[in-house]
């Protein structure tokens, strides 16, 4: 059994670090965040430093240069920041809506639940790219519009997850006990039920970040990205025409996207294993 005198949060860490892939994922995710934060310091060239175009990877430009002659590695490093901002902000938006809707639906149940779930389903059937194209066409392609679109598209999953947790947790006796003490509905939701409902939400959020990064890349790849912000998707978009001539323009941003998504998914998977043998004893 669990040794006494160990806080629940510490138990989660102890279980998490048992799995090598999870630690690998966490290291990757940490590297991704670090690169994003220190991007301007790490990039060897600025975006405006143009040199000769289509330089293959070599001593001067480690990952080569693109069609305009700017350094692929530098662009990738600066693109990390866009990915992180989009990933985090989209997930924050999505969870702000999803958690509110899910908690209210699951806690009050009945008619409230019914109405909120029907609304949720309406959002779930929205075709992703169609909505994205409309928003970009109407409001322009800033990364904030992309964040908004991703948030709108992904909150239903969070809402349904949290609702399911709430439906089972609200019947537990500790909730009744707190209600019997005179706790308000708001306190019951936020202090009693929510902390117990978070594990699947945390796991989902870590997977959502990688989903958001991929979605932003897809949109940019199709030319719907923010032209002001350097991003991996835009690099891929620019590389399309020159794939035969300069494979490095597409390969390295693609690889970055792949490893980042992988690292985030492994972290989420590890969190899932660490959080799910619930601390219920």
């Amino acid at each position: 059994m669990v040794p006494a005198r160990v806080r629940p949060s510490r138990q989660v860490w102890m279980r998490f670090r048992r799995k090598k892939t999870a630690l690998f994922g966490l290291a990757g995710a940490a590297l991704f965040v670090a690169v994003a934060v220190f991007a301007p310091l790490l990039a060897p060239y600025g975006t405006m430093d143009m040199g000769p175009s289509f330089q293959p990877p070599g001593a001067e430009h480690i990952l080569g240069t693109d069609s305009l002659g700017s350094d692929v590695l530098s662009n990738m490093i600066l693109g990390t920041r866009t990915s992180l901002i989009v990933g985090l902000c989209a997930v924050l938006t999505s969870n702000a809506i999803g958690l509110t809707v899910g908690a209210i639906a699951g806690y009050f149940g009945g008619r409230t639940d019914n109405i909120l779930m029907r609304v949720t389903e309406m959002f779930q059937i929205l075709p992703q790219f169609f909505l994205a194209i409309i928003v970009v066409a109407l409001f322009g392609s800033s990364i904030w519009n992309i964040v908004f679109v991703i948030g709108i598209l992904t909150w239903p999953v969070t809402a349904r997850l949290l609702r399911a947790e709430f439906l089972s947790l609200r019947k537990r006796e500790f909730v009744d006990a707190a209600r019997a003490l005179g706790m308000s509905d708001f306190d019951l939701i936020v202090r009693e039920i929510l902390p117990n409902a978070l594990p699947p939400i945390i796991v989902n959020a870590s997977l959502q970040i990688s989903g958001a990064i991929l979605l932003e890349a897809s949109l940019s790849f199709l030319g719907l990205g923010d032209p002001e912000a350097m991003s991996w998707g835009i690099m891929l978009h620019n590389a399309q025409e020159y794939f035969n001539r300069a494979w490095w323009m597409a390969a390295f941003p693609g690889l970055a996207l792949f490893t980042t998504t992988l690292a985030l998914n492994l972290t989420g998977d590890g969190l899932n294993d660490a959080l799910n043998p619930r601390l219920r004893t």
């Binding site: 707190a178 003490l181 009693e192 117990n196 601390l279």
Partner: peptide, 15 residues
């Protein structure tokens, strides 16, 4: 007015 529950495992918030 207060209540004492049957199941001492589910009547305390584990967190």
């Amino acid at each position: 007015m207060q209540i004492i529950f049957q199941d001492p495992y589910s009547s305390l918030n584990p967190r």
